[in-house]
Design a protein around this nucleic acid. Structure first.
Lengths: 342, 342
DNA sequence: CCCGTTACTGTAAACGTTTACAGTGACTCC
DNA sequence: GGAGTCACTGTAAACGTTTACAGTAACGGG
């Protein structure tokens, strides 16, 4: 490995001068600078990040701790974080697959001294537990329910989104709504469920308007849940899956049973994954800008590091209702082409 | 920040002893060990990764450089890499969104001294260009065409997979096949296209059996391409989209035009993304185990670092033909439930 | 009683940088 | 011509670890 010392010797200057050239700070004579640069490229030198980090006390890296990595959700999230972080010249250290809180804490410990800040998304189980403690490192929590004790968090307006969807369904005349819920103890799922209850309440509908069946955010669980709902009495006239993957499963089940969507049963999802508009029928869903959420989390961490205006508190990522045809969008009955192609 | 020196002072020992406790190497008296551990947790000490890296000359990190981060493909890839890497106690540094070769090289330079090895996937354009040079760092290239000059690479059996699919289509009686190709200069797409030609040749069919329309791996491009194919004369009796996302777009277009799948036109995809089995009809496709590919790449890099048996060369990830109903799977005509639920 | 061994612990030199501080000429100005 | 300023460069001390080497005390054997 070739070091700053080799370059200095070869160029006939001190290591301080080489360092100055590479941090293009302070005054270095143009000739010297040129010479050093030349020697450096000839020798194939580039500064050693670790050594630099040790002395400057910044790693130029932020850590991202995720519970899991299945599905488009996480790739979008990483994409958002990566983008924001790279824009400020930072690196991204990713650690995923943390089944419980202990693993998250250990991942955080392992990252000590390797990152300047952290973005953490907790695994489903212990969401609202003991607040995360990261020593001096800026930390922002991602997802889950708002207001659980930590200073910084970016969360989705799950509750508002679900509420808006239920109101939409009710406005279409549905008074018996089947909801395919998320995993137990997943607080995003919990929040969406609360939103459903809010919406029902808004409409003056009671508990009997709601048929809740558990799912786990997978297509398979949506399939099973929808099949179960078809046997319910009274049978719901609308199915609201708390994410799009489960809605896809539900559509598949309904099709297998010969039930027409939306004529017989309306179906709605949550997330608006890219293919939602290409489904049959195109899926009415609640849009969430996941990569924006990741970007915001990263930006927040960076702001505590002195990049950009600093702020604190819980920030909420809004949702949008995307009305397509799976709930019988009035006025869009004829076969339409996906809006991204219009 | 609390350092090894603080712990040493507080515990009344030297920093060497504290270090020894944390690397649980060599002999340390049980009492001393206990005391140090106690002080360390009381003070909330954990070793500083950067400092450790500097002296040990290993960062316990491997770098992953990706062209992009859109879609499930990349999250699966990261998942595989992350898993393999964590199993050996390594960290994962991710850098994505590299539009061209220069950006890849700069990302590699930025990672110098921060990682012990690299997994690199090149952006679509300059795939087969100048081989990657990483100095002393072990490097494995991911995806693209095999045999382009680098020592280590993990690639998908794109060609075999596409060939198998074409043979399947031909065996079903199709002699006019529309292929929705991938982006220009994407070598995975190129390889799949070569496989298509192989398959056609196997069947003794000429160039006129093939209708090629360009796509870019997105649902939208699949939609457009399928629509274009419907206007071709003679019209193909089967559409083979070179990935599942485009197949989904194609299904959507066919539906909009009132064409029945598979009765009027067969549709096939490539990748076998999770929801392929939940589509209408369930999609016949070529299965690729993406996360396994990522894991293999990581394992290969790690092997050069002395973890596990070492090997070199180009490794090929096999594909499997998944016959479902979108091409008229004989004997599976009645509505079936997805196989993951059976 | 001395020596060798064992079991533990401390000292100090690295690792490759950055940066405060201290030079060193050359030039300007009075 | 001396002082002051300026532009540039070098010296050396950090940053928080690991680890070779040396040191110490206790103990057993001769």
């Amino acid at each position: 490995m070739i070091t700053i010392r080799d370059v200095a010797r070869e160029a006939g200057v001190s290591i301080a001068t080489v360092s100055r050239v590479f941090n293009n700070a302070e005054a270095v004579a143009t000739d010297t600078r040129r010479e050093v640069r030349a020697v450096a490229t000839r020798l194939g030198y580039s500064p050693h990040g670790t050594a630099r980090s040790l002395i400057t006390r910044r790693t130029a890296t932020i850590g991202l701790i995720l519970p899991d990595l299945y599905g488009e959700f996480f790739s979008e999230l990483i994409r958002g974080v990566d983008h924001a972080v790279r824009a400020q010249g930072y690196h991204l250290l990713v650690s995923s697959s943390h089944a419980d809180r202990a693993e998250v804490d250990s991942a955080m410990a392992l990252m000590r001294g390797r990152v300047d800040g952290l973005v953490v998304m907790l695994p489903e189980r212990q969401q609202a537990q003991v607040p995360l403690v990261s020593g001096r490192l800026p930390l922002v929590r991602l997802g889950g329910a708002p207001h659980n004790g930590d200073a910084d968090a970016i969360v989705v307006a799950n509750r508002d989104g679900a509420r808006a969807m239920v109101r939409h369904l009710v406005s279409l005349g549905h008074t018996r709504i089947g909801v395919i819920a998320g995993a137990d103890a997943n607080s995003d799922a919990d929040e969406r469920m609360s939103g459903v209850r809010d919406g029902l309440e808004d409409a003056g509908l009671g508990e009997d308007a709601l048929l809740r069946v558990a799912g786990d955010f997978s297509e398979a669980s949506g399939f099973r849940a929808a099949r179960e709902m078809l046997r319910a009495d009274p049978r719901p006239t609308a199915i609201f899956a708390l994410n799009d993957a489960m809605a896809i499963g539900a559509l598949s089940a309904l099709r297998a049973e010969g039930v027409n969507v939306p004529a017989d049963i309306a179906v709605a999802g949550f997330d608006d994954i890219p293919m939602a508009q290409f489904l049959d029928p195109p899926l009415t869903t609640v849009r969430v800008d996941i990569s924006a959420m990741g970007a915001r989390a990263a930006t927040r961490v960076l702001s505590h590091l002195g990049n950009g205006p600093s702020g604190s508190g819980v920030e909420i990522v809004p949702t949008t209702l995307m009305v397509r045809r799976s709930c019988g969008n009035p006025g869009a009955w004829s076969p339409t082409i996906p809006e991204s192609l219009a």
